[in-house]
Design a binder for these strands. Structure first.
Lengths: 183, 183
DNA sequence: CTGCCCATGTAAATGGTTACATGATTGA
DNA sequence: TCAATCATGTAACCATTTACATGGGCAG
């Protein structure tokens, strides 16, 4: 599971509550790993049992009490070991490709609609990746080295989405040519 | 769930057993959707209860009895409707990017090893995509239109993996330049 | 005689999503 | 007064993976 290690990664910066961590996921990690608050609270409890984090309950008068988690030495070791691990390529689960495999059942305009809509969504996503919000994230980097690494994660998204966009634009064009050839 | 619909897609070609379907997944669909036999058998049972498929038990003397599934008219309708559905972009779960987010904790050579190993795996995968095995699949296409669609699914994989490979090669180069700059 | 192919399944664990639930504070 | 933010959680469900299980036929 990577969720555990991603949480350790954040906690290695500074102590956080589950609520803080959820927000960190939704901002800096949203594009390549997501998690619901349910999942985060559950995992933090597990990690506490495993001794990877310490828990401190902070009473508050104006808000509900909060539980602040701090990484332990054991947690740091687990994080370091995990960071070095060489994983296989991530499994792909690409619904559109499954649809295309069987799309011979559809009408021409339905196929084009499927492709065009996907293209629109890719363009929207690319706008997000190029937005100020996205690039603002690595202003908090503590060194050029860290900034470089964070930049890599963004660039990966841009590279793959641009490749898919080229693919889909070519696909639409080729499909239209095929239509003309065989009316 | 796409598994159900992928199964319907295959059954729309001809009747198959769960075992056949597992093999079809492992060959023609392996690159963009995977399924274990456990999952397939369970889902076929559900689909049977829902009336999407008919089941015929074929007794065999030399092998265990088998259950041959045939798509029903209701199943065909469900498949057709699903094929037209416009999905959001698939969620990304990219462990390497999570690792890179926290990789500032690693030594230079460990970061390079992480990137280089991922690059090797991308190259291996691209070899598979360009292999005869992969292209042999769409010899069974029944029309140029179908062949075109199947070709699209392969090209998507090639385009995205090539983009990632370019990204990682650039990343390694840039990282080495950064090292020289700050020793 | 070993191991793979055929053909099916159950059980358990892990991961992830959705819905339900509480309750105070703050800003529009 | 309405919605959002802070802060936590449970329960139920769905999806996926891994391990365990059976048992005959066939080829090296």
């Amino acid at each position: 599971m990577s969720l555990k290690h991603a949480l350790l990664g954040f906690l290695n910066f500074s102590p956080f509550t589950g609520y803080d961590l959820k927000k960190l996921f939704d901002t800096s990690m949203q594009y390549f790993w997501s998690a619901t608050h349910t999942q985060i609270y559950r995992t933090l409890n597990q990690m506490h049992e495993e001794g990877l984090v310490r828990r401190e309950i902070v009473e508050q008068t104006d808000h509900p009490d909060k539980k602040v988690y701090t990484i332990t030495e054991e947690g740091e070791q687990v994080l370091r070991d995990w960071l070095k691990h060489h994983y296989d390529l991530p499994p792909i689960r690409h619904r559109l490709l499954v649809q295309l495999s069987f799309a011979n059942l559809l009408e021409d305009d339905e196929i084009i609609a499927l492709l065009a809509d996907y293209g629109d969504k890719l363009r929207e996503r690319l706008v997000q990746y190029h937005s100020d919000e996205a690039t603002a994230l690595y202003e908090r980097a503590r060194s050029e080295r860290e900034r470089f690494l964070w930049d890599l994660t963004l660039k990966n998204g841009i590279a793959t989405y641009e490749a898919e966009l080229n693919w889909i634009e070519q696909a639409i064009e080729d499909f239209k040519n095929l239509q003309e050839k065989e009316p």
